[in-house]
Amino acid sequence: MSDGIKKFMFVNTKAPYGTVYALESLEVVLISAAFDQDVSLVFCDDGVFQIMDKQNTEASGMKNFSNAYKALGDYDINKLYVEKESLEERGLTLDSLMDLTYEDEDDDWAEKPSINLVSRAELADLMDQQDVVISS
């Protein structure tokens, strides 16, 4: 692309807490926002567990980093794709997930949902359109 903006897609496939992949990926995503690129996130396979609502780490004593996903809108990251089949295989629906939104600067700061439910086939197309795909 001539304007130097590339399409970056971060594909999250791992459950949070059991391994450090989810947290590390989130940090890379937040850092990438400083470079004004076209960033999107995918949650598929066990990655859908990363944005589960009502995560509560009080008893386990781990750092609950789920609230940081709610700040993605502030970082102008508002294209989050969740794979429908991955939710279904895990007995989940969109209602199981956090309500992640952004404020649309071009529409009088109206609050809009960041999460888009997509099929496996649609996801394959989306991945095909990227300049850079980073999986974890």
Binding site: A15, P16, Y17, F49, M52, D53, K54, Q55, N56, T57, E58, A59, S60, M62, N64, S66, S96
Partner: peptide, 11 residues
């Protein structure tokens, strides 16, 4: 393990 369940958002 209940605490690991709650950590991940389940009841």
């Amino acid at each position: 393990l209940g605490s690991d369940l709650n950590t991940r958002g389940f009841a």
